[in-house]
Structures are given as C-alpha cells and as structure tokens.
Design a protein around this nucleic acid. Structure first.
Lengths: 113, 113
DNA sequence: AATAGTACTTGGCCATACATAGTACCTTTT
DNA sequence: AAAAGGTACTATGTATGGCCAAGTACTATT
C-alpha cells in the first residue's frame, strides 16, 4: 500500500467522467483527449484510454466516425450520444455529492485539530 | 456499464482518505466510522470497511487496541501511526490536485457550451 | 439454556487502470 | 519500389479495491 497506488485508485471512475466531459464539447479523437488530460495534469496513458473508449462505445454512451488524416492512419472522432448525455448528467451529480461528502469529513477535521 | 457501478468506482481510494481523516481525529472503532460516513451521506457497508481497516493496519498506517464494551464484544479502537499521518498528508495533496484537474476539465465545458 | 444484538472475519466476484506487446496504415527516404 | 519511421488503434494479462454473503465470537436479555 503506497501513495502511487492509492492515487491510481482515486482516479478510478473520475477518468470516465472527465472523458465524457471532453467529448461533450465536440468531436475529438484519442490524441486530442490525451493532450487535454495532460494539460490538466491528469496523467493517463494509451493503455488506459483506448479500452475506456471501447467500453463507452459498447455501452452506447459515445459513437464515432472515421476521419482520414493528412499525417497518418484514419482517426476515430467521438461524439456523445443521447444516452451518454444523460449518463454524464448523472455522473456530474454523483461527483458533486462525493466532493460534498468528502469535504464534510475532512473539514470537520480542521476545526477540531 | 451503469451509474451505480461508476459511483462505486469513483469512491475507490477516496474512502481510504476519509477513513484516515476520521481516525486522525481521535480513537474510534468501526461503528463510529460507519456512523460518521453515513452522516456525510457516504454509503459504506461493513464488508468494505473491515477489510480496509485490516489493510491499513498491515501497512502500518494505523494501529488499534482492544477495549471492552458494556454492550457486546470488545472493540478495536484505532489510532493513526506516524507513518499514517505522513501518508494522510500525501493523500490530501493528491486529492486536492485531483479536484483541481477535474475542475479544469469540467469547467472548461461550461464556458464553451 | 435459548435468543437477539453487536463486532469482527473471511472467501469469492467483478470492474477498472495499467504495462506491454502487437497490428495496421500513412508518409518520407533512399 | 522497398525500407524506415511515425501515428492510431487493438489485445492480453496483472493487480487492486469495493462489495456481497456467509460465518464466527462475544455479551446481555429472557
């Protein structure tokens, strides 16, 4: 049980939330997402992102279309489906509740200690 | 892939952070923790909490002493170790960074949409 | 002695993040 | 045209943690 490991655990689920958010803003492909996540200092690697996108696709939350590229193989450009949009709303609520609950616990600490 | 499942995933790691916080405020046993988590609307069940406490103990982050009860079997009262205290500091930093990263991504959405 | 309640334990299941290796396609170089 | 390098996506196996469910052990009540 080390810090690094716990950091990974903390990211679980949240990553899915962030990806859906990024896709909700318009058509993007995997490298775009990686760039944006990296810019926000959320470290993610290919081996995590691609399987996640496949899961989202299979669950009907996102869909993609192939678009040819000028500098390499074609790319999958993702968009949110209707279902995905609703799912994202639910996730947003969950996330905010989780933040609130955590704050309630951790800030209670500060007032007493 | 349903909401409930993702909620579970989001809780991962965060729960550990909350538990350490609660223990950092003074001696408590499992039921105390459950009460406090429930009060903060963070739903946790025994089968999650007890194994987590065992992991924390094995990792040397917490320690406990047996205290007899007037209404049932003896209880394990937990306290944070020196190591646990440092670990909690690290986790706090990680948590705040994670919040910050997530905000950066989700709030960017709001300004554009 | 039997019952009910409290506290803790254990084994198995599932989903996700990650590491790693691999496939496929395109462009550039020679 | 063949080779080399880069980009984009795929597939497999591992580890971890939350949860369910059943079980153990102790105490107090009836």
């Amino acid at each position: 049980m080390n810090l690094e490991n716990t950091q990974v655990q903390m990211r679980k689920g949240i990553l899915e939330y962030c990806i859906l958010h990024i896709i909700s803003r318009g058509e993007v492909y995997a490298s775009d997402m990686l760039d944006e996540l990296t810019a926000a200092r959320m470290i993610v690697v290919e081996g995590t992102l691609y399987p996640l996108l496949t899961r989202l696709k299979n669950a009907g939350l996102v869909e993609y279309k192939w678009v040819e590229s000028k500098s390499g193989p074609p790319r999958k450009y993702y968009t949110l489906t209707e279902t995905g949009s609703h799912f994202l709303s639910g996730l947003t609520e969950t996330w905010e509740e989780l933040i609130h609950s955590t704050n309630q616990i951790t800030q209670k600490s500060k007032t007493i200690v």
